[in-house]
């Protein structure tokens, strides 16, 4: 393991301190936690608070999206480990300005349980809390015998939508409704070239040979659906796009938002090449995305690979929310 760290067990607290000290204009730390809240308190007055979080190792998620127009607070758990209920609860309290708090949770058993317990604690304090469990990863085919589909890069688009709606004064119920209807239209699929190494573990979560790739890997090195030899960018796009199409037909008369997300170690150069091939293949289907983002948004430490998220903008309002101005580190 070769990483720019001090003690592996202090990775998260030192990262959080580094973040809030580097970007005091966006973030401040909630005392005695690894949770961060928006510094611009005025921007939250009279509005529903939006709280997200999860294990660390997905930077810039989730603290990078805290700021006016997006998240009110974010909680950083240990690396690839859900944060604890007391910390989530502290973030809920900091984000509550009398209109309730909306939680964005990724569908992992740990996240779901810890956020659930935090919700119970907040409700004891008479804070209204609602939530969405994001499960955009289509790699998991059969949810009957698993935890269900995982929450991955599409979560960032969810943050953007609910954050914009909250900033425009939407109620907690309206935000819940928005999140539920949008979720059904967000689909993500990934390909990995190499695995991530959790600092406290010291070795990669899985191994791929030099010329091997794996389709459908999750953001904590969860296994995907197929391994094969590395292919050209064009062929990777074809595989991922066809996989998405099987779940959500791509129609030339629909409007789409696209997120090409780097998993951590893949250079932007490669992400742009992938995007170029993607746009070609969408063009073959007479589709020109109305919104696109390329870059590292939901990473998996130093995993190499990309994920592709396609969001079918069934409701015109959603594009407006995606384009709504924000003040964050990373959007």
């Amino acid at each position: 393991m070769k990483k720019i760290i001090n003690e592996p067990q202090h990775v998260v607290s030192e990262m959080v301190d580094g973040l809030v000290r580097s970007y005091p204009q966006y973030l401040e730390k909630i005392p005695d936690t690894e949770a961060m809240v928006r510094s611009d308190k005025d921007s939250m007055t009279g509005k529903v608070g939006i709280v997200s979080g999860g294990g660390s190792g997905h930077e810039p998620s989730h603290a990078g999206f805290v700021g006016k127009g997006m998240l009110s607070a974010a909680v950083a758990g240990q690396v690839f480990t859900s944060p604890t209920p007391d910390q989530i609860y502290a973030a809920i309290k900091a984000a509550d300005h009398g209109k309730g708090v909306f939680l964005v949770i990724k569908n992992y058993s740990g996240d779901v349980m810890n956020f659930d317990m935090a919700k119970d604690l907040a409700e004891l304090d008479d804070i209204k809390v609602k939530s969405i469990i994001v499960d955009d990863d289509i790699a998991v085919e059969n949810s009957l015998y698993t935890q269900g589909r995982r929450g991955v890069a599409g979560t960032v688009l969810m943050h953007k939508l609910v954050g914009a709606a909250a900033d425009q004064g939407a109620t907690l119920e309206e935000i819940e409704q928005l999140a539920q209807s949008a979720l059904a239209n967000i689909k993500t699929i990934a390909v990995a070239l190499s695995a991530a190494t959790v600092p406290e573990v010291g070795k990669p979560g899985f191994t791929l040979a030099d010329d091997e790739i794996e389709y459908g890997v999750g953001i904590h090195s969860e296994p995907g659906y197929r391994r094969e030899k590395i292919k050209t960018s064009k062929k990777l796009v074809t595989e991922l796009l066809e996989k998405i199409e099987k779940n959500q037909p791509l129609k030339s008369d629909h409007q789409y938002a696209v997120l090409v997300n780097g998993m951590g170690a893949t250079p932007l150069m490669e992400q742009y090449i992938f995007s170029h091939d993607l746009l070609d293949q969408l063009e073959d289907r007479q589709i020109k995305p109305v919104f696109m983002k390329v870059g590292n948004y939901m990473t998996s430490i130093e995993m190499a690979g990309v994920s592709l998220t396609i969001f079918d903008l069934v409701d015109n309002k959603w594009l407006e929310y995606l384009n709504y101005p924000v003040e964050t580190i990373a959007w």
Partner: peptide, 14 residues
């Protein structure tokens, strides 16, 4: 346990 373990094990043992 609840406040230190995190993940799935924290809430379950807790």
């Amino acid at each position: 346990l609840i406040s230190k373990v995190g993940g799935a094990s924290g809430p379950l043992y807790g």
